[in-house]
Design a protein around this nucleic acid. Structure first.
Length: 123
DNA sequence: CCACTGACGAGTG
DNA sequence: GCACTCGCCAGTG
């Protein structure tokens, strides 16, 4: 799908000065480009968005997404290849795993994804 | 303005 | 591989 043209409508309540809002927009734009069946890490997304070193912002930005947004947030995992949402106590955790498995992304017994195999490598 | 929290990551022992 | 620390940014009380 042409994710590049996907406009982000998910405002987070930041109406002032646009610095922060612009960062969020970049983050969403990158996540929207992750192809089906692939995953990217928070740090990777931050780096691709020109925000190297701010992986935490990516997680913060994704947490602000609403249900129904077109952003494939489930394709973002941590550096260990593990799903981590609010200390593993959120139902969204299960949703993420199910969505990924449905895209053929396999989980190992330890509950992690082999980044060697499924990491998105944009060219 | 300060303290605390939160979908993280890299470094250290 | 695990536990702990520090750095970074944004939002809330």
């Amino acid at each position: 799908m042409g994710a590049e043209g996907c406009v982000v409508t998910g405002s987070i309540g930041l109406s002032r000065g646009g610095k922060s809002a612009d960062r969020y927009r970049r983050i969403y734009a990158v996540v929207a480009r992750i192809p089906r069946g692939r995953v990217a890490t928070y740090g990777q997304v931050a780096r691709l968005a020109g925000l190297g070193g701010h992986a935490r912002l990516v997680g913060y930005a994704l947490s602000a997404l609403k249900d129904g947004s077109r952003i494939p947030w489930h394709r973002v995992v941590n550096a260990k290849g593990r799903i981590s949402l609010r200390g593993d106590r959120s139902p969204a955790n299960v949703v993420q795993r199910l969505r990924l498995e449905r895209e053929s992304v396999r989980f190992e017994v330890s509950g992690i994804i082999s980044l060697e195999r499924f990491r998105w490598r944009p060219r």
